Computed example of a mutant assay.
Amino acid sequence: MLRNIVLLLLLCLIYSLEASDSDKCVTVNVNNLNDLVLKTFRPKPCMTVNINGSGKMEILSSDKFKTPLSNTPLAQVRITGGTFSIDPNFFKQYRHSLDVVTLENNNIPKLGYHVFQDLILRQLELRSNNILFLSNPFYNCSIYNLDLKHNKIDHLSDITFSYTRLFHVNLANNSISIIEPHSFPDTVITIQLSHNLLSSIGQNIFSNLFNLVLLCLAHNRLEYINFEKSDLGKLEDLDLSFNSINNLNQAGFSSLRNLKRLNLRNNHIKSISATNLQTSKLKILDISFNFFINFPHASLPESLNVIYVFGNPWNCKCLFDIEDSFSGNVVSNTMDCKLSQIVNAPICISYGGLCVDDRNNTLINAFSKEVSLYSNDCRDLLQNVIFDYEH
């Protein structure tokens, strides 16, 4: 009896070791995709291909992977270092098994029509591939995380993600200057669009995204925004920092009824209407490094926990009024990086104890000078009030 138990345990151990070994990736180094056919390696469901080629354009097609992977249910594939276009039939052969696809540091100028058609992926990583154009490559796909950052995409249209179930998309560090209405599917939960070339956001751009929770538009060239007619009832995090916004009169923040964190840091905003702040769930507001002299603090919701105000040319009486009105909350007038160590950093200017809206360039010039000295240290630390979500 005991002997049988021991044998059974040994068999279980051997099986578990074999199973864990089968989960490991095989890495293949080749000079070009054609070399894959000649390579001899043990097929595994996870595969990494490192291409050390001359940069000559190739085609990533099904025949490249036929030997010895034709009978292997490939779950994860990673390809780096190549210059190629993708045969629409390549990924279809693994559509029942693929879970993660990573194509990075390649040269793939165009993702053609239906390249990833019918795939159900947990992760699709397409970063740093010099992609210029997306010609509806995701048709009839379901993708939980799509990473397209560090490419050269300049335009999103209503067919870019058409007929796609997409939940989290990262398009940071591209050259996007145009987003057409309904460019994103209504399934999207988070959108990362920082470090692009957007100059305006019209009221219809995100009008269909009623599931959106996080939207990051930091580090663009935005001068105008309007969310008034956008159906963004679930949006909780909005990052508009490091842009050129100077007018928020038509921003439509009041329509964002679930907004909890609003980052307006480092813009050119001089004033904001009280109606724009009437969002009942706002918890964190960052207006640092703008041109505020006064602020309609009385219209801020009771839900607000923290407001960051440093780096504005405040009238002292107006600033003290804000602090007094939030005696139970936090009004942060300090920096959480090296700027907080500047002994002579100005805070506000007094006008004989009166709260007047006179513009004073002394503080504006002083802040501009100090921020330029420490921009590399501070901006990386302070640009995000946005949090990651898991759904």
Rank of each mutant, 00 (worst) to 15 (best):
N4Y: 09
I5G: 00
L9W: 03
E18C: 08
A19F: 11
A19N: 08
A19K: 09
D21S: 08
D23T: 00
K24V: 02
V26Y: 00
N32L: 04
L33I: 04
N34S: 15
L38R: 12
I51H: 02
N52F: 06
G53E: 06
E58R: 03
K64A: 01
F65S: 03
T67I: 10
T67W: 04
T72Y: 01
L74G: 02
Q76A: 08
R78W: 08
T80Q: 10
D87C: 01
R95P: 00
H96K: 14
S97H: 02
V100Q: 06
L103W: 03
N106P: 07
P109E: 11
L121E: 11
Q123I: 12
S128T: 00
K152L: 15
K152P: 01
I153A: 09
D158V: 04
S162W: 03
A172H: 11
S175W: 11
V188C: 02
Q192R: 01
L193F: 09
N196K: 01
N208K: 08
N220F: 11
N226K: 03
F227Y: 08
F227T: 06
S230I: 09
L232I: 08
L235Q: 05
L240N: 10
S254L: 03
L259C: 02
N263C: 05
L264H: 10
N266S: 15
I269R: 02
I269Y: 02
K270V: 01
T275E: 14
L277A: 08
L277T: 09
K283L: 14
F291I: 06
V309Q: 03
F320T: 09
D321I: 03
S327W: 11
V330T: 14
N333P: 00
K338S: 15
K338F: 09
Q341W: 03
Q341H: 10
A345V: 00
A345K: 01
G352T: 08
G353K: 11
C355Q: 12
N360P: 04
N360E: 11
T362V: 12
S372T: 12
S375P: 02
R379N: 15
D380G: 15
D380P: 02
L382E: 14
H391D: 08
